[in-house]
Nucleic acid binder design. Structure first.
Lengths: 129, 129
DNA sequence: AGCAGTTAATTGCAAATTGCAAGTAACTGC
DNA sequence: GCAGTTACTTGCAATTTGCAATTAACTGCT
């Protein structure tokens, strides 16, 4: 088996980028965690307290998968009671467009739904130290 | 119970448009059917023959849900052997941006994945390099 | 007329995933 | 020393998924 075949084999269902993306984020919870990260949430308990009330075992699983797929990183922000924070990587931040498209579709087509805040705000000021 | 409460109650998890959108399209298969519709596929068997090989009971279920949510319509395109076609509504076509965002994210971040075709092709673009 | 083939499903069942409750471990603050 | 917080894990029932087989209604071939 060649390297190319190895690469092909790792596509779970097909080489279609939509299918591959869905293999990573195609479920009811993953993008809600990403949404929370865009909203500035960082810790396990912050995610747990979001209005959708994600079950704790699902949250633990999704965080693991997001780390495995390079969308977030997990790092301790304090040792003594060791506490972890989860941060979006560049790859994860680029899911902002997916989130934004869903948010806009939802706001337009699901009457009564209302965004608490928008991800990927157009802020042109990031070069400040 | 007031009308407002009725409206609130119908949100499955929260009024967040991202969560509401995920309640409709947040699974591994639904958006693949929508992708196929963007690719010009219209019939049950065309969806079945896509490379991901969606199980037939899942396909039947997802088509029902897409109809129920106003994303597609089902109509006979011939009577005698009565045959059905499924067509995107305006609401469904507006999922093109979600699909496009996923496609671009996948192409960029999943090495080897390659789009067979792009939904929502922007006719006016890509003159610069 | 008989039979294979196509389309659009439904049914049955095992396996996997989800959702809920409870429990755990390490620590803090009173 | 005891309640509270954080970040989980475990157990288990319920739901969903995936696969195979089957069905119903027709067409086209011989």
């Amino acid at each position: 088996m060649t390297e190319q075949q190895n690469r092909v084999d790792k596509f779970k269902r097909s080489p279609c980028p939509v299918a591959c993306t869905l293999d990573i984020i195609g479920d009811k919870w993953t993008l809600l965690v990403v949404r929370d990260l865009f909203a500035g949430k960082k810790t396990y308990s912050e995610f747990q307290h979001s209005p959708e009330k994600i079950p704790t075992n699902i949250l633990a699983d999704r965080l693991k998968r997001l780390v495995k797929n390079g969308i977030i990183v997990k790092e301790p922000y304090q040792s003594h009671p060791v506490r972890y924070q989860y941060l979006l990587t560049a790859k994860g931040r680029e899911l902002g467009l997916v989130l934004k498209a869903m948010l806009q579709w939802g706001e337009k087509h699901i009457p009564g739904s209302k965004a608490l805040m928008h991800p990927v705000q157009d802020k042109r000021e990031e070069l400040k130290s």
